[in-house]
Design a protein around this nucleic acid. Structure first.
Lengths: 153, 153
DNA sequence: CTACGTGCAAACCATTTGCGACACC
DNA sequence: GGTGTCGCAAATGGTTTGCACGTAG
C-alpha cells in the first residue's frame, strides 16, 4: 500500500531484472522523474525533468524508454488514442470498448452499463457534463496474439 | 430518435445556418462522409471518402472543417488527448475528471465512483481488464471563459 | 460585392528510426 | 566480450498555417 518514491524505484529495479532490462542510470532517472512528477506528464515534460540531472540525455532516449516501460507494464499511459484524432459518428451518448492491443473501439449503448454514479461532490467550480466509460481490454484478434501481455493496462 | 443520414444532414444545414457557417459543397460532403462512415473515423479516412466525390479536395480543407464542426458542436471527437502521450503516475486504479476546454486531467479515487457494472456479456472473444470512467466537463478556469460553449461534448 | 471558404505548399510538433559509439551483465 | 542501450540526426506521421483565388450569401 505504501507508494513512496523509494518503494516504487525498488519495485522498478526488480521488474527490470525480471524483464531482462539493463538497469542504466538513464532508465532509473527517467522512471524517477515520472514517479516524482505526479499528475499526467508528457514525454516532453519528463525530458525536461531528467535533463536537469543528466544534461546530455537525448529526447529519443526518453521516448525509447517510456515505450519500453509501457510494453513491460512498468508504466501506464492515460490514453490509448494519442496518435490521431478520431471522430464519433454515433450521435447518442454511449460508452466504449477499447482494445489496448490495436486501439480498436467498439460502441456500447448507454443502457448496456449500469448508470455511473459519483459518490462525492466534484471539486468546487468544476462543471461535469457526462461520464463516459472505457472498458479496456483485448479484441479477439489481439487476445489471441498477445497471451498474457498488456494485462496491466 | 430517427438518425437517418438525411435527417442528420438536414439538422446539419440548420445548425450551419444558425452558426453563421457557409453551406458549401465541401462541407456537406465532409459531414456526410463522417455520418456515413460509421464507427470512429480519422480525418485521413474522411479525406479518402470525400476524395471519391470531390477529387480536387484538399486534406487541409478536411481538417479545417472538422475543426469548425467540433467547435460548433456539430461533431464530437472520441478523445480529447490526441495530441500528445500522457502517462499515469498514480499506480492505483482510478478514474478521471477531464476538462474538455484545456485537456486538464484530475484523478478521482476509484471509491469516489459507484462500481461500474456491465449489464450484458461483452462480445464473444473479447477480454475486458477494467473499466475506466472519464467525467467530461469544464475546469473552473475554462468554465469561466467559455460560458455555454462545448456543453455538447 | 465582400467576407468567408478553398487549395496548395510549406511549416510545425510529437514520435520513431538508423546507426556508430559505449556500457551493463 | 557481446548484446543491449545511448546520443545524434534524419525521417515520419499527423495537423496547422499563410496566402492567392474563388464563391456563398
Amino acid at each position: 500500500m505504501a507508494h513512496t518514491v523509494e518503494d516504487r524505484l525498488k519495485k522498478f529495479r526488480q521488474q527490470c531484472r525480471a524483464a531482462g532490462l539493463a538497469l542504466t542510470h538513464q532508465r532509473e532517472t527517467i522512471f524517477r522523474a515520472v514517479v516524482e512528477s505526479g499528475g499526467h506528464p508528457s514525454p516532453e515534460r519528463i525530458y525536461g525533468l531528467v535533463k536537469r540531472r543528466i544534461p546530455a540525455i537525448s529526447l529519443a532516449t526518453v521516448y525509447k524508454n517510456i515505450r519500453v516501460f509501457l510494453d513491460a507494464g512498468l508504466l501506464r499511459e492515460v490514453t490509448v488514442h494519442h496518435g490521431t484524432m478520431l471522430l464519433e459518428t454515433n450521435p447518442e451518448d454511449h460508452h466504449h470498448l477499447v482494445c489496448v492491443g490495436c486501439g480498436a473501439i467498439l460502441d456500447l449503448e448507454q443502457e448496456a452499463v449500469e448508470p455511473v454514479q459519483l459518490r462525492r461532490r466534484p471539486p468546487a467550480g468544476y462543471r461535469i457534463f457526462r461520464p463516459r466509460v472505457e472498458f479496456l481490454g483485448l479484441c479477439p484478434g489481439c487476445a489471441r496474439k498477445k497471451p498474457e501481455k498488456s494485462s496491466h493496462l
